[in-house]
């Protein structure tokens, strides 16, 4: 196997939380948003990250680009640990890793024209490019994301949500990154526009040889775009597998519940399918359950689950399919 583009080892993010009435000298409590995540990403691959709100998906993405303080190792191309780099040394990698955000309009500065917005990363990383060259590249990029290049002087509020997201994508791709982290890029868009944006991303990925980390809570979108899918719950990886394996044969009870909840666009089938309903809410990350974090809501939880935390390991004959569950595979998927 060749060197992975990105290798995450035991990435942990915790936040110090002070509650309202705390005295200045009381130690802040810590909230673990991401607890020891490991994964690899190959060049040109798309990794989908799914999980419910508040499970640490976005925090994980921000930790990779050092927007939040974190521990562990983020190894880039097999040799550089991004987390240990100094700020100026990190600059070089900031152009190689770009991000696409959730809310397309909020991610664009309302006082800047589209041209200025798209050119910003280019100007930051190549400050000595002549203005004409910058403009030419911006126009070329706009064409690539199917925006009319003559609208370069328009402002974000003059565009629709889907167009704004295209602007966001253009801004991310103008510096020719190797990895683009998409943080729920389509959840704020209409379904029809979602498809356009996803297909655009896939087309550009092929053209430019990008790797993508695609964060979403919509499993069908993730299924469409990803090569591999990782399921997060309360900052921990529950299951990671190739897309087809995960959707056809989910082994973790949480994944099974998630997949059973995906609506099928056929009313007859939709009515006849059984949905695994999970009781309760996501537990507080400030007081995570002992043992397996999912046990409080797991329909299959046993006494062992409260005592020992399951590790992420291979449970069946497929070496790329890892599950963090003591009893994975002992019960049939529904």
């Amino acid at each position: 196997m060749n060197v992975p583009l990105l290798k995450i080892e035991d990435l942990r993010v915790s936040f110090a939380i002070r509650s309202e009435g705390d005295m200045p000298w009381t130690a802040p409590r810590s909230l673990q948003a991401v607890g020891g995540v490991n994964f690899e990403l190959q060049q040109g691959e798309t990794l989908g990250i799914v999980g419910e709100s508040g499970c640490g998906k976005s925090t994980l993405a921000r930790a990779i680009i050092r927007m939040v303080p974190s521990e562990g190792r983020v190894v880039w191309m097999g040799d550089k640990d991004l987390l240990s780099l100094s700020k100026p040394a990190m600059m070089k990698y900031r152009s190689e890793i770009q991000m696409v955000f959730q809310d397309p309009l909020a991610a664009l500065n309302p006082r800047m024209t589209v041209g200025q917005i798209i050119a910003e990363p280019l100007k930051t990383h190549h400050p000595d490019l002549p203005a004409g060259e910058v403009k030419a590249r911006v126009k070329e990029m706009m064409e690539k994301v199917s925006l009319l290049p003559n609208q370069i002087n328009r402002y974000p509020h003059e565009f629709s949500g889907g167009q704004c997201q295209r602007i966001g994508i253009a801004r991310a791709l103008i510096v020719q990154p190797k990895l683009v982290i998409c943080d729920e890029p389509v959840s704020a868009l209409d379904v029809s526009i979602q498809a356009q944006v996803i297909n655009l991303l896939m087309k550009l990925q092929k053209e430019m040889g990008l790797s993508l980390i695609f964060i979403a809570h919509d499993l069908s979108v993730v299924k469409h775009i990803s090569n591999r899918v990782m399921v997060l719950y309360l900052g921990k990886v529950m299951e990671v597998a190739d897309r087809d394996t995960l959707y056809a044969k989910p082994l973790h009870p949480y994944t099974q519940a998630l997949i059973s909840a995906v609506p099928i666009p056929d009313p007859k089938k939709e009515r006849s399918k059984t949905t695994i309903l999970l009781e309760g809410d996501l537990p507080s990350p400030m007081a995570p359950p002992s043992g397996c974090v999912f046990r409080t809501r797991c329909p299959k939880a046993q006494a062992l689950c409260a005592e020992v935390e399951p590790t992420l390991e291979v449970k069946d004959d497929n070496a790329s399919h890892k599950i963090a569950c003591h009893f994975a595979g002992t019960f049939a998927s529904s």
């Binding site: 955000f101 959730q102 809310d103 991610a107 500065n109 006082r111």
Partner: peptide
């Protein structure tokens, strides 16, 4: 706001963020 985060993520310096993204708004 996300556009500030976008600028930080791409490595724009704090000084420029204040002048180009915060002050005009």
């Amino acid at each position: 706001k996300e556009f500030i985060e976008a600028a930080q993520a791409t490595g724009v310096s704090s000084f420029r963020i204040i002048l180009r993204h915060i002050v005009p708004n």
